[in-house]
Amino acid sequence: MNIFRFIADLLHLTSFFILIFKIRKSMNVVGLSYKSKELYLVVFLLRYLDLFLYFVSFYNTIMKILYISLTAYLIYIIRFRRPYCLTYDSQNDSFPHLKFIYPGAALVTLISLDYSNIGLFEICWTYSIWLESLAILPQLHMIQQTKECENITGHYMASLGFYRFFYILNWIYVYYYTEKIQWISTLGGILQTALYSDFLYVYLKSQGRKIEI
């Protein structure tokens, strides 16, 4: 554990609480993509299958359980909890996200380099890395449809975007001291941050004013 990874994890955790705060305060879920949340739930459920395989640390275990449960809770609020779910904008949450869930899974299974002893978990983990890198697309699509996004939604998306950026700093740090590199997570993280970069640029430039896309 180093400071970059710790900041990254806290940013990630913060993004959930910003979102819960936004929904409670505004009493609506306008501008939020349910589909992105659904993808994140698949990501966490697949990646954290290792909760049943081995123990790393209390910190990791608690974070994993929080990521899964907070994502499930937000899905419940956005789609099923009244009155919030009545304001869900399904018209603009129109990204065809299911179209890359299945081809992606097939692709990862096919290009796995280490068939012999990789095991099902390794394939699930790899897939979760790539799926996470794309999971924000429905949310980005949504704010592009509406051409603007509320400040607090912007804070939520920015903390979610900067979290992976700080993981990149963490990987650079780890590589510098140990010369170890995990290519899949590093490349997935770079792709993920790149997809956010446009938004993060606009976010930083807006400096708290209304974010227009």
Binding site: D9, D50, Y54, V56, N60, K64, Y167
Partner: peptide, 10 residues
């Protein structure tokens, strides 16, 4: 070995 595949990141 099993530890080779142990993931310590989130």
């Amino acid at each position: 070995s099993k530890s080779k595949y142990k993931k310590d990141e989130l």
